[in-house]
Amino acid sequence: MSKPVPPEATPPATPAAHSPREALDTAIRAAYLANPVITGADGRQSIVLPREFSLQPIPDEARLPAIPAQRVTVDDRASLVTYANRFRDDRSLIVADFDALEIAAHLDWHPHNTHEDFLTSGAQKHSVTLKLRPSEEFARWDDMEGKFVPQAEFARFLEENSSDVGFPEAATMIEISRDFEATVGQSYKSSVRLDNGDRKLVFETDTKVQNGVTIPQKFTLSIPIYNGEQPDTLVALFRWRAMGGGVIALGFQWHRVEYQRRAHFAQIAASAAEDTGLPWIMGRKA
């Protein structure tokens, strides 16, 4: 009969081999412990704690809540109103900058002075801006304004754009342009001011035959100043200049159109404010 083996002589049991899954879990735990801070898609940070590796937010008393950050540019007044009405709140404000031809609704402006959060700063990250552009018709006439060009060139310009003219009517302006064309090659002799303020320019042919062209003192245009807006009635003053060799140059100048540009700009801003229920100011954001 063999003797019993003392307990201290019993060899220790061989530990079970780790499975591949256990090895992977150990590697993941080691990676978390090496870099426990995780930044989320919204910028918030969390830390992985050893207890079941659950995410716990890191307190940050100075962090502001998430806000929309978007700056949209639109091409017409209706789009400005639609966007502003969708995202406006009690902080929103419209700023109209005439120098930049921009009307912007700042949707996350500073709180109203009656609000409990008054004296806190708005994020100013969310806005919609209407960038006004001259209409095609206004740009075409404005490019010609102040220039003196040969009568044939001016006649062609009048005929091509006669549909923009309000008074005298388009047919009269075309007739005037054709009268100018008929005097090309003739020598300018004199001008006569008529009772109604119009001018009659007298030309003479080589055979001493005289022809007269009557030009109005002024004419009006019915064209929109800004793209997408309704037409305005603009006044243009006819101008002429005697050149050497019996030739004259023709042109026109705006009459108080700059006042109309500013007034129409303010009307667009006021209309947008009315349609959105937002206050508005004339100025610019620093």
Rank of each mutant, 00 (worst) to 15 (best):
residue 20 P to F: 02
residue 20 P to A: 10
residue 21 R to A: 15
residue 27 A to F: 01
residue 27 A to M: 06
residue 29 R to L: 11
residue 35 N to E: 13
residue 35 N to M: 03
residue 45 Q to I: 04
residue 45 Q to N: 10
residue 46 S to C: 05
residue 47 I to Q: 11
residue 49 L to N: 07
residue 51 R to Y: 08
residue 51 R to A: 14
residue 52 E to C: 05
residue 54 S to R: 14
residue 55 L to T: 03
residue 56 Q to M: 12
residue 56 Q to L: 11
residue 58 I to Q: 07
residue 59 P to D: 07
residue 62 A to Q: 10
residue 64 L to I: 00
residue 67 I to D: 07
residue 70 Q to T: 08
residue 71 R to T: 06
residue 71 R to M: 06
residue 73 T to G: 02
residue 77 R to T: 08
residue 80 L to S: 01
residue 82 T to E: 15
residue 84 A to Y: 00
residue 85 N to V: 08
residue 88 R to E: 06
residue 89 D to W: 10
residue 90 D to Q: 12
residue 90 D to L: 09
residue 91 R to K: 14
residue 92 S to V: 05
residue 97 D to K: 09
residue 97 D to W: 08
residue 97 D to R: 10
residue 98 F to G: 00
residue 99 D to S: 14
residue 100 A to T: 12
residue 103 I to A: 03
residue 104 A to I: 10
residue 107 L to H: 07
residue 107 L to T: 02
residue 108 D to V: 04
residue 114 T to H: 13
residue 119 L to T: 09
residue 122 G to C: 12
residue 127 S to N: 10
residue 129 T to V: 14
residue 129 T to W: 05
residue 131 K to C: 08
residue 135 S to G: 12
residue 136 E to K: 11
residue 137 E to R: 13
residue 137 E to S: 15
residue 139 A to R: 14
residue 139 A to K: 13
residue 140 R to S: 08
residue 140 R to P: 00
residue 142 D to A: 14
residue 143 D to T: 09
residue 144 M to I: 05
residue 146 G to S: 04
residue 146 G to P: 01
residue 149 V to A: 02
residue 150 P to L: 01
